[in-house]
Design a binder for these strands. Structure first.
Lengths: 195, 195
DNA sequence: CGAAAATTTGACATGACTCAACTGGAGTGG
DNA sequence: CCACTCCAGTTGAGTCATGTCAAATTTTCG
């Protein structure tokens, strides 16, 4: 269903019927089983995927082998290693489906073709990059200025329902703490709330 | 001296003599005394400055009033709040000169004019944004995956001589620790190195 | 049902913070 | 050019958030 991407883009920029057809033809549907990877660190993956249905995590594996979730991707979000600028670069990030997930992807060359035909699109993707930068900057500043408890509360506020979509140890990884610590934090919170 | 900017840009993209003149005319020289601010959080500052001479710090003040250095700016670097996308947004960041510093700035409208006249320039600035994203992403991943000691060593390796340019408590702030902690770390390192 | 994975709980360790005192060097004004 | 002040940096003792390791329990899923 490339339709959901076309709908999403239509709500952001003006598209003629012809534009819509071009976009629908250029993108390719990929179905990922739970735990399957869309891309992995160390490989050339110039992938920018639109999530039609499902949930993903984008994460980094450090030199000690520990995983750190950089962000989650939900329905109608983009996932990718936005830090890559050339199609032949190897990235540091991996992306894995947290449930059966359907995404739309495009070949870099094809994307260039689309840009040439639909100028508004290039502008839009530039804004997406900048929004990623803004989000990452906020995330970084929050991380260095608050403790895990505060970050947890901020996350719940910003993404209500996330606990139904993402297992707890992945949330812990996103918060930068161990699953044990998150478990204890939640318990403390409950103890403080004698209804 | 807009020359240093023109030289810098010439080394990155093709510029005709006319282009160079346009750029030199569009940018404006600003001299900052030590401790003076180029922009401050909460104000509309769509500033992207090129450092001709000197050193700056870009930092965030959290809700408890503590400062956190996001990055330093040295000669021939760009400083700004790259997360801003509209000229009328208020930013979270502030930028201060760590010594007497000279920068070149441009009005957003004038920048648009330049982009219209020199298409290669727009492409270049897009790459700058993306490079900022890449740098920030690495910084974030390093921050969540290593301790202060490792981050300190990484910094010294990546920016040799930084200790001559930036006072120690600012380096501590960049590393996400208190000055006392950095002082102790350095002592430990010395104690371990009986020449 | 049974194995594997996720979560919880406990006891203990540790890196970094807090607060406070002290030292030394840089800048300022007389 | 000295005396004074101020700020950066150092050092110390005690605390706290989070990590570590290990075991028990619950949930998930084939």
């Amino acid at each position: 269903m490339q339709n959901s991407l076309v709908e999403y883009l239509s709500s952001k920029i003006d598209l003629s019927e012809n534009d819509k057809q071009l976009i629908a033809d250029a993108y390719q549907l990929v179905k990922l089983k739970k735990k399957e990877h869309l891309f992995e660190a160390g490989t050339r993956h110039f992938v920018e995927a639109f999530i039609v249905q499902g949930t993903m995590r984008v994460y980094y594996v450090d030199s000690k082998g520990l995983e750190h979730v950089l962000y989650f991707g939900f329905k109608n979000w983009w996932v990718g290693d936005m830090a890559l600028y050339r199609p032949d670069e190897c990235g540091l990030l991996s992306a894995q489906a947290l449930e059966d997930t359907t995404v739309l992807i495009i070949h870099p060359d094809k994307k260039e073709e689309l840009f040439a035909k639909i100028p508004g699109l290039e502008r839009f993707f530039r804004i997406i990059i900048q929004r990623h930068l803004a989000v990452l900057q906020k995330r970084f500043l929050l991380t260095v200025s608050t403790n895990a408890q505060e970050r947890y509360e901020e996350l719940l506020e910003r993404s209500p329902g996330i606990e139904q979509l993402v297992p707890q140890h992945q949330i812990a990884s996103y918060l930068g703490i161990l699953p044990e610590s998150l478990s204890r934090m939640k318990k403390q919170k409950l103890d403080k709330r004698p209804s």
